[in-house]
Amino acid sequence: MCRWLAYSGTPILLDELLYKPRYSLIDQSMHSRLGVETTNGDGVGVGWYEPSDQPVPALFRGTGPAWGDVNLRELARVTRSGLFLAHIRASTGTPVQQTNCHPFRYGRWLWCHNGAIHDFRELRRDLMLAIDPDLFPSVAGSTDSEVMFYLALTFGLRDDPLRAVERMAGFVEQVARAHGVASPLQMTVGATDGDRVWAFRYSSEGKSRTLSFSTALTALRALHPDMELLRGLSEETRLVVSEPLGELAGAWNEVPESSYGVVQKGDDELGAFTPR
């Protein structure tokens, strides 16, 4: 399985989250505490929007272990963004190659995934045949995660992200049933169009991988008034993470089982996720 994070808020340097926290994403690539695998060394990627009005987000993906990627370290040291998605990969059987590294990108959209479609090789043909023919040429890799992304795009991700991902999940389960595959889907997903961030936590067996979001900044400042970093961030700043980046009291809230969340300007959303 994998680890990922999504950040939305006051522009910060990428290394503030990728490297500096006690349990940073790069630390999790070697010492994951809550993942299925302790080590996530099969690739790394980050996509970001800066300037925020650029038509296509920037994307860096490398096939080596995140802890040894000197190019990522240099990039993170000087790159500032108010919205980015980062991912460290542990392969579930597909090759370690750049096109299989997350985030995946289509137009302004970025997508990353932790989990798996069980027995994906058996289901892969039927799933891929359902992808919109106009989108199909853009599929570049061989992962179940990328297929999920293009199915979600096929089912309307750009117009109604919640319904599109619910339809994607329902379709995967429908195809799996036809092949006699029980409990096929395990996922936490992060997706963004550069404006809002969507997060999804779901599994067919009802035992999903971990996913948390950060507490509102006003509450964090009240709990930890001496933390200088918190003073420089806007009230809109939020983090969604596979695994908390530290043990700061009151900082993290678990996303409930079978739920989705939206980080956006104004009030965020949290609701039930139901495959269709």
Rank of each mutant, 00 (worst) to 15 (best):
R77E: 10
L85S: 02
D268I: 11
Q54T: 13
I26T: 14
Y49R: 12
F149Q: 07
S204P: 05
R177T: 08
L110K: 10
S145L: 03
E269C: 14
S208C: 08
A116L: 15
E228V: 12
R22F: 09
A222T: 11
R177W: 15
H118K: 13
N100L: 07
G107L: 11
G232V: 12
L127M: 05
G170C: 08
A130Q: 10
A178Y: 08
V56R: 13
L5N: 00
G141R: 02
K20W: 10
D195I: 14
G41T: 05
C101R: 05
E16Y: 08
R177E: 12
G35I: 05
R276G: 12
T39R: 13
W4H: 14
D126V: 08
A199F: 08
G250I: 05
S142F: 03
T38K: 15
T94K: 05
T143Q: 04
P244Q: 02
A152C: 00
V197L: 13
L83S: 06
L245E: 07
D53G: 00
F171M: 02
C2L: 08
Q264H: 00
S142L: 09
R22H: 14
L223M: 07
P256R: 07
A219T: 13
A6M: 08
L85P: 07
G47L: 03
R158V: 15
W67D: 06
D126S: 11
D134L: 14
V139P: 00
D193L: 15
N40T: 01
G82V: 01
S24T: 06
I88Y: 00
M1I: 04
D119G: 11
R201G: 05
L129R: 14
G35E: 01
P103D: 05
D267Q: 13
R121I: 11
P65D: 00
Y260S: 04
H224E: 05
W109S: 01
S32G: 14
R196C: 09
D267V: 13
K265R: 14
A178C: 04
R124H: 10
D193R: 12
D268W: 15
S81V: 03
H102R: 05
Y7T: 02
V96F: 05
V36Q: 12
E166S: 12
P225M: 06
E243V: 01
G115C: 12
R201H: 10
P65H: 05
T237Y: 13
L270R: 04
F120E: 03
A249L: 10
T188D: 03
L75A: 01
L245A: 13
L123S: 01
S234C: 11
R221N: 03
D53M: 02
S203W: 02
V181I: 14
N71R: 13
V56F: 07
L5K: 02
D119C: 13
S258L: 05
G190M: 15
Y7V: 04
V181E: 00
L230T: 00
E257W: 12
H113P: 01
E257Q: 11
S29Y: 03
F200S: 06
A58P: 01
P225C: 03
G271W: 04
E146C: 03
M187S: 15
R125E: 13
V46Y: 05
D193A: 10
G232K: 13
G41C: 07
A116N: 14
L153H: 03
E74K: 11
L185G: 00
T215F: 00
H102T: 01
S32K: 04
R209M: 12
G82K: 02
A176D: 06
L157F: 06
G64T: 10
L110R: 08
D69T: 10
